[in-house]
């Protein structure tokens, strides 16, 4: 599911924004080897301080599994500056009806390689795109110029979402390359992506829904701390030197399991 985070609601979603910056660090520095600035394991640049809009995909556990950053091309944006090499010194496009999409990525560690499951790379890639195009379309935007890497380009081509053209040239960003693709924010494209990925209905979460999904996810993850407890119990069992110690350790574990199970039942 998609939540659009911008400067109007960003303070409500600071945890999700941090998680998104951490995902970006893993993708753009670790996987693609782009020359990006990392602070506290988070990838952020000056464009993040210019009040962009983020299209963020959350999985069922409230994790950030995909994201994209949007800026107007009438104002400061990356192709005008950082990615100027792509345009070979040419001035960038400027229109209130063209937005720039950058830092488009999905979490390939958390997502599966299958094709149609909602937790697959291709589904989440498509979902982020549908979210961005519908958000843009409703804002009166007709096209997007997206700075992407060649792998993302291939995923898009295979998801019924091939760019209709490219501008400038592909440039070296370190281990991987970057290129600028043109995509129309049209209903035809949105329908094509939706059909291909099997996305039905509204992809957008309200602020309240996104918050509750994120909170629920956090609560679930806190419960996984119990696996540390479990490790402790197992260690106690393994390290027991006498029969009594061993029985006590087994009893402790059984009691804890029972208590935790009954709590989960109550929650359910």
């Amino acid at each position: 599911m998609i939540i659009v985070i911008d400067a109007l609601n960003r303070d409500r979603f600071s945890d999700l924004v941090k998680e998104m910056f951490r995902l970006r660090a893993r993708v753009f520095r670790d996987r693609l080897g782009w020359d990006v600035t990392i602070t506290d394991e988070m990838e952020m640049d000056i464009y993040d301080s210019l009040d962009p809009a983020y299209v963020v995909s959350l999985d069922q556990d409230g994790h950030v599994v995909g994201c994209m950053r949007l800026l107007q091309t009438t104002g400061p944006h990356m192709l005008a500056d950082v990615f100027a090499d792509i345009l070979e010194g040419e001035p960038p496009l400027r229109s209130s009806q063209i937005w720039e999409a950058t830092r488009f990525c999905v979490d390939t560690e958390r997502l599966s390689r299958g094709s149609r499951a909602t937790n697959s790379i291709s589904y989440v890639t498509s979902e982020v795109m549908v979210g961005a195009f519908e958000y843009g379309r409703d804002a009166g935007v007709l096209d997007a110029v997206a700075v992407i890497d060649p792998v993302m380009n291939r995923v898009m081509i295979r998801s019924g979402n091939a760019p209709y053209d490219y501008i400038g040239k592909t440039v070296d960003m370190g281990k991987a390359h970057a290129l600028a693709a043109l995509l129309d924010c049209s209903n035809e494209r949105i329908d094509r992506i939706r059909t291909h990925a099997g996305i039905d209905g509204d992809v957008f979460l309200s602020d309240a829904e996104a918050l509750s999904l994120s909170e629920r996810g956090k609560a679930l993850r806190t419960e996984s701390v119990k696996s540390d407890l479990e490790i402790y119990c197992d260690e106690q069992i393994a390290n027991a030197t006498t029969a009594k110690e061993r029985v006590d350790a087994l009893r402790l574990k059984a009691t804890l399991v029972e208590k935790i199970r009954s709590r989960t039942d109550v929650d359910a």
């Binding site: 007709l142 096209d143 209709y164 501008i167 043109l182």
Partner: peptide, 17 residues
């Protein structure tokens, strides 16, 4: 040898500029 939509995008940008 570009798509007609690319032509439109450049025209839109030129009008704005």
């Amino acid at each position: 040898a570009i798509s007609h939509r690319t032509v439109e995008v450049h025209l839109r940008s030129a009008r704005t500029k």
